[in-house]
Structures are given as structure tokens and as C-alpha cells.
Amino acid sequence: MWAGCLLGWGLAATAAGRPAREAYAAPEVDRSFALSAAAVVRSRAVLPLAAAALVCPLSALLLGVGTGAAGTWALFGLAVAPAWAAAVLRGAYRPEVDWAGPVVSTPMGVVPAGVGATLLQGPDVGVVGSLPLLAALVTGGPTLLLAAVQAGWSLLLAAAVLAHLGGRRPRR
């Protein structure tokens, strides 16, 4: 169940993060706004947060329909939404793959060394942010205390990602 939630939420996050990724690839778009770099990153978080706040509770609600605690599951899904919005932004603002360095030959062609670490930036925050969900699944269901822990953990991760991305130098 946990892997299914991660996969579904990751796909929804990828779709919601597309505009932020395109804006990162074309930084002149962000420079046209009279906003600081931190404010631009925060504004880019609105769409992913809205999408995650819709998808995560609905899927968690479906998870909880058979348990009799559908409302608690939906609350739990809402609590994980900030972590997935942060994952979207971290993935959107990850550096481009560096083709100037050494490459590794694979059956599908050459790829830059270290491409796996680059591609994991973003989903790693979502997976770490969803660890309380794994605890809820293992212990038999969410409690209000575990939902509060999930909300606090998600908000902490989201604040850390926003602070990190907002303090980065804009791409030239």
C-alpha cells in the first residue's frame, strides 16, 4: 500500500511540477517578475501544494474506506501534502545532468556518471515525508497523534526545502 501511495503521489507531483521545471529551465521567466528569488520559489509552490492537497487526501480516503476510519485517513493524506509539494519543488529545481564529466556505457546508451543521484532529488523528500504513513500502515491505521506527527514532519520538510531553494543563486 505504501509503495502504491508513493507511486501515485509521485506521478501527481511530477505533473504538478512541470511548470516549475520549465521555469527553472528558462530563468528569464522568473526574472520578469518583480519578486525576490525566495518569493518566486514560494509562488511556484502554490500549484504543487494545491494538487497534493487534492490527490493525497482522496487517495488516503480510498485507503481508509474499508477500515471505518476514512476521515482519519483523509486527514492523514492532507497532512502529507506539504512534503510532496516540497518534493515537487526540489525536483523542479535540481541541477541539469552534467554531460561534461565521465560517462558510463549501458545497454541503453551512455549516461553521465552520477545521473541516479541527480534524478533522485525530489522524490527523496516525498519518500522521507511519507515515512509516518508507513508507520500508520504497519501499526494498523492512523491515529490523530500520528496525523499530527505527519503534519509536523511534512511542514518541517517543506520549510527546509523552501529555505534551501529560496537561498540559492538564480541560474544564469
Rank of each mutant, 00 (worst) to 15 (best):
G122A: 06
A38V: 14
A38H: 13
P48N: 05
W99T: 08
A160Q: 05
A87Q: 03
P82D: 06
V65G: 13
V80W: 03
R21I: 07
R168W: 02
A53Y: 02
V55T: 15
L165P: 01
A158C: 01
S154N: 04
A23L: 04
R168I: 10
R21S: 08
L144F: 13
P82W: 00
A83K: 00
G140W: 00
P48A: 04
L58M: 04
E22C: 10
T139V: 15
L54G: 14
P48T: 04
R21F: 05
A45M: 14
V115T: 13
T143R: 00
L62M: 08
A70P: 13
P82I: 05
A38W: 09
A79F: 10
L58C: 03
S130C: 07
A113F: 09
E22G: 07
G167E: 14
A12I: 05
T118I: 14
R21E: 14
L62F: 10
A70D: 13
A12Q: 04
A45F: 13
G129K: 00
A20R: 09
V88K: 01
A25I: 03
T106H: 12
L47Q: 03
T118M: 09
L119C: 08
V125L: 03
T67F: 03
A81Q: 05
V138K: 07
L162S: 00
C5N: 12
V65A: 15
A85R: 02
R44K: 15
A69V: 06
L165V: 05
L11S: 08
Y24W: 14
L58W: 04
V127A: 07
Y93E: 15
F33R: 15
V127I: 08
A39L: 13
G116I: 13
A87P: 04
S154I: 02
R168H: 10
G8V: 02
L165T: 03
V149P: 07
S36V: 03
V80L: 06
G167Q: 15
L61S: 08
E96N: 04
A136E: 01
Q150F: 09
W2I: 01
G8Q: 04
L61M: 12
V41D: 02
G8I: 01
R44P: 10
A23F: 01
A12D: 02
A81I: 02
P123G: 08
A37L: 15
R172P: 14
A117S: 15
V149E: 13
W9K: 03
G109N: 00
A39K: 10
L146V: 06
L155N: 03
L62W: 04
G101C: 10
R168A: 13
L54I: 15
L75H: 01
L165A: 08
L145M: 11
V55P: 12
P123N: 11
A160T: 05
A92P: 06
W73A: 06
V97K: 09
W99F: 12
T106G: 15
Y24A: 11
S59P: 06
A136R: 00
Y24C: 11
L137A: 01
R90F: 00
T72I: 12
G64P: 05
L58G: 03
L146S: 01
A45W: 11
S32A: 11
G141Y: 06
R42C: 08
P48V: 02
Y93A: 11
A38M: 13
L61V: 12
G167W: 09
A26E: 14
G4K: 06
G4R: 09
A113I: 12
L156F: 07
V97W: 11
L89C: 05
A15S: 06
R44G: 13
A70S: 14
V65Q: 14
P48S: 02
T143Q: 01
A26W: 10
